[in-house]
Design a protein around this nucleic acid. Structure first.
Lengths: 343, 343
DNA sequence: ATGAAAGCGCTAACAT
DNA sequence: ATGTTAGCGCTTTCAT
């Protein structure tokens, strides 16, 4: 059964297609009676204006492309959910791609979608892209007047709207919290030291130590490769054996859990004499034993914010203005891997 | 900077638009020299044929819609990844929506996408839809010649391609494994008793007991509401207090972890005198202590399979045939919450 | 109040 | 080898 078009409806009532079009759009030019019968017929026969014809005519598709580095990552899944919700509420559809942290995939995706199929982009950079430090594919988009909003993993060099986490301040606060609850030898475990956000968190860590007059112990700044999460415990064990550590700040949940396991295996009691805080507040933190205190990045809010910004621009609700960067504040979600702060 | 069209190129070389079109499509009708110069120019100026124009002309959009009940669920994220990979490899784009287990959202999504924007659908039913037992929105799609592939949570009444897990056999095998490794009092915890797949797993559980001549203890068949995962432990504790239990099969990771925690709190040693197996093999299983043995549902493979089936049909690689149901076999991923089976 | 016609960007059948 | 034209489904300006 072929889909109904205005042509079909026009034939049905022996009127012209433009009459039908106007009738369906409730134009004042058309008599009430014809409007009624045409609208009734359209409704009964489930008429839907063809999307591609509309897009072609209007030069806008009401769909936004989103590129996410890794969908199996809970944080990104949260962002996705936030974007999806706002987009839907505002009548936009989402075409989504996973870059799998690959530069090539990211570029190809952008290529594929830069033919009028989407009105704008929301994306977080693939790790490979960041390392390569090549953002020309994004610059080209912008030159072609396709608005972009970047989130979390953003390119400083690219002039576009951005939504980021307050990685620096967030980490400073985390150090402060740990110090206040009695920790002195705080390790910093990063699986993203190569990313800018990894650097920012590290600087926040260092700043936090400084504010609390704690001397930096380089051995307690631990970089791990992200891939081999199965090896995290093996990597951490000797470090824990050879250093005095009573707290850990980790940039991700997996390594935080590994650290907690190693500490427990070494006989520490969490949180009595060992504290753990992890970034991102995902699903693992809520299921670990003990449940983990986290720095929540509010993935859904980040996604929703990014979508609002992009759609505001697309819908021209907003007069063109300088690109802006919105910082989403983190906050500490206290669970059982840290001591309560007693006044 | 407006995007380049064939019209622009035609003007550039003072030829007709059809010459340009043919040249770009490498038609034998066009002289080599003009083809070369036009193609060169198009490439240099980054010409991309307009997607909407093509879709309008060809009556196909090379994009598939996918509806997923919950993106924060690792299993569904895996399926998504599988679909995305295959779709991309075969030149298809993906428009994705989250139904959030809502019937209304599911219907609205299908409404929204049934205007020629997608060529076909891949979806897993929202819980609400299953409870409502109303699939007319899907039937209508099929009547409109829009191919659908359903996965995991499928509607038996709807005649379309399906990709499912061998829930029944998979659970039987699980019981057998537990019995072989010495468990006698096996509880079955389900957070999805209202879904058909939940029923199948329960039947598999009962069948497994029967095969091993174990009398069913109704107290050990535990239904929990899916929403309040924070309450899982509270719900399970009294049940564990009042019954003899030495093993648990759970339909999801969260409740399995809760059961494991309760058992450990009660003094059991996992896996020495208490075993736990959970469905779905997600991220939690790999991070629990001890790491959890699971029934892997191979989400990525399910997604990839669904995509292959749909695209085969869309590309007409396959002569129209009766809808088929593909069963993806589960298998046991042994970790540390079960004893090794010694021969 | 209704209709004719042009045009969005592209393809393809049909001239020339 | 190149061009003209119609048409995909819709909107909109300009007749009537």
């Amino acid at each position: 059964m072929k889909r109904l078009t205005i042509k079909d409806i026009a034939k049905e009532f022996n009127v012209s297609i433009s009459t039908v079009s106007k009738a369906l759009n409730n134009s004042y030019e058309i008599s009430i009676s014809t409007k009624e019968k045409i609208q009734k017929f359209a409704k009964e026969n489930n008429y839907k204006p063809n999307f591609n014809a509309l897009s072609l005519k209007n030069r806008q598709t009401k769909t936004i492309g989103i590129i996410i580095p890794n969908m199996l990552n809970y944080f990104f899944a949260q962002v996705f959910k936030g974007i999806e919700k706002v987009a839907n509420d505002r009548g936009y559809k989402i075409i989504s791609c996973i870059s799998n942290e690959s530069y090539t995939k990211e570029v190809e995706t952008i290529e594929m979608l830069s033919n009028g199929i989407i009105d704008g982009f929301i994306l977080s950079l693939a790790e490979e892209t960041i390392l390569k430090n090549d953002f020309s594919h994004l610059q080209e988009m912008i030159n072609n007047d396709t608005p972009i909003v970047m989130f979390d993993r953003v390119a400083d060099d690219i002039d576009c709207d951005k939504v980021i986490t307050d990685d620096f301040i967030g980490t400073v606060n985390t150090v402060n919290h740990l110090v206040k609850t009695g920790s002195k030898n705080i390790a910093f475990i990063s699986t993203i030291s190569k990313l800018k956000i990894g650097e920012k968190r590290k600087h926040g860590y260092l700043k936090g130590l400084e504010e609390n007059n704690i001397t930096v112990n380089r051995n307690l700044i631990i970089d791990i490769l992200e891939d081999d999460y199965k090896e995290y415990e093996n990597i951490l064990t000797p470090i824990f054996d050879n250093n005095t550590i009573d707290a850990v700040i980790a940039t991700d949940e997996s390594s935080a859990i590994a650290a907690m396991k190693v500490a427990i295996k070494k006989g520490f009691k969490v949180p009595q004499n060992f504290s753990v805080i992890s970034f991102s507040n995902g699903i693992l933190a809520r299921h670990s034993s003990p449940k983990m205190t986290t720095v929540s990045q509010h993935g859904e809010i980040m996604g929703a914010t990014a979508a609002e910004i992009l759609i505001d621009k697309l819908d021209k609700k907003i007069t063109p203005e300088k690109p802006k960067t919105v910082v989403i504040k983190t906050n500490l979600v206290e669970r059982n891997s840290t001591k309560k702060f007693a006044l």
